[in-house]
Design a binder for these strands. Structure first.
Length: 373
RNA sequence: GUGCCUAUGGUGUAACGGUUAGCACAUCAGUUUGUGGUACUGAUAGCGAGGGUUCGACUCCCUCUAGGCACC
């Protein structure tokens, strides 16, 4: 039985639901990132107010702190952070690749040095599953091997094949009632990607992710791969584009049939004073205009609120925005808060950028509902 | 009042009688795609004023100005 239910389609863009232990998710959706058990600068209550449907957290970080046994003793992440909605956890594969320079990958797993105290940790598909079970995530990701964006074909092939074998081990070792997603690898090579997807489908997963993109390759290549793979993946399972992306990328991927997204951009950019603002009413945008990797014009602006030009600007980031930040704070105030490094700057900016991304997803869902035949 | 010391971007400082006066912070602008809020890239901006010595002075000398210290 599938937890995914397809409701409507506009061409290949899909609106549906995913049923989890902690509620029903409306797709397509965006997952704010709570790496270490918190969306940076915000509380679980804030995330509820923002109407975030689901949070993403990280096996890698939580394995380092508080650790496996401690997480078990704490009764899982829902309890720890008092979040009643669904949680998806990343397996740690990507973090080993992106955060830890000193690591050694073998067929067994990855030995890496903790970025906190330098101690050596051996992370395997089995340990990743064990940790994700301890966390109590509703959706868990397979442990995968990620190749850098500029790798030779042989390295992409190796990472893809190893990820496939690890996918099998993850499925075998997972004993709880969690949903497990496989991850398609293979870089920018269509044949490797397709081999990966078919291999995963043979094993059988509750959903399929496209990994290893947005790591330095051209946007045209990402679009080509995602379009192709969405035609290969089964229609009765959710599809998850990992790690991306800019708003216009998400709009394009939804129209290729992707259901799930996560990205650090709204939250990290917020902390650096770069805020997203619609330049038109998102409820009335015809999203079919945004299917190209390089659209001639965008539906939003990026407001760098630390810029000098906003020193005395009394208007909010986006006058049409209904978020707490825009209802209460001027650009001048935000600029001031960044200037004096008040923590409130991070909080207000993060609220706004997440509201932007979540509003974008809501608009896409409504657009599919409106235009579906 | 007398003597001594100091004066280099917004701030704190470095060097040298000889290419384009170095660094840090601040400021300004940019980068950030399954998150090390701590990172990275670029830009703006300076020899207190006047005179002298010298082929050449931010550097040596004199005067002035400002600040610091000591003494009366």
């Amino acid at each position: 039985m599938s937890t995914y239910k397809l409701i409507q389609q506009k061409d290949v863009a899909r609106r549906g639901t995913i049923t989890t232990n902690h509620g029903v998710l409306q797709t397509p959706f965006f997952m704010p990132i709570a790496t270490k058990g918190a969306v940076k600068s915000l509380s679980s209550h804030d995330m509820k107010e923002l109407e975030a449907q689901i949070l993403l957290s990280n096996t890698y970080h939580l394995l380092l702190r508080p650790g496996l046994e401690q997480m078990k003793a704490l009764g899982g992440l829902h309890t720890l952070m008092n979040w009643q909605g669904p949680i998806l956890t990343d397996s740690g594969g990507y973090q080993v690749f992106s955060l830890s320079k000193m690591n050694k990958t073998t067929e067994e797993g990855v030995t890496f040095q903790s970025h906190i105290d330098g101690s050596r940790i051996h992370l395997t598909p089995e340990l990743s599953m064990q940790m994700q079970t301890a966390i109590g995530a509703d959706i868990v990701m397979q442990f995968d091997d990620v190749a850098a964006g500029d790798s030779p074909r042989a390295r992409y092939k190796e990472a893809m094949e190893r990820s496939l074998r690890w996918a099998g081990r993850c499925k075998e070792s997972l004993v709880s009632g969690q949903q497990l997603f496989g991850i398609v690898q293979g870089g920018t090579h269509e044949d490797l990607r397709e081999y990966s997807a078919r291999g995963l489908m043979e094993i059988g997963f509750d959903g399929y992710a496209i990994g290893g993109l947005s790591v330095g390759e051209k946007r045209e290549d990402s679009y080509r791969i995602v379009k192709h793979i969405c035609q290969v993946l089964p229609e009765d399972k959710p599809r998850y584009f990992m790690g991306g992306g800019m708003p216009e990328e998400i709009v394009a991927y939804v129209q290729m049939g992707v259901d799930m997204f996560d990205c650090v951009l709204p939250t990290r950019n917020a902390r650096h004073g770069t805020l997203f603002a619609f330049n038109q009413d998102p409820a009335t945008i015809d999203w079919s205009k945004y299917q190209d990797p390089r659209p001639t014009e965008l539906f939003y602006d990026r407001v760098r609120v630390t810029n000098e030009m906003y020193q005395t600007d009394q208007s909010p980031i986006d006058p049409h925005c209904t978020c707490e930040t825009c209802k209460t704070s001027s650009r001048a105030y935000l600029r001031h808060l960044f200037g004096v490094q008040e923590l409130l700057a991070y909080r207000l900016a993060t609220i706004h950028n997440l509201h932007f991304y979540l509003t974008l997803m809501k608009s896409l869902r409504e657009w599919i509902a409106k235009t579906a035949v």
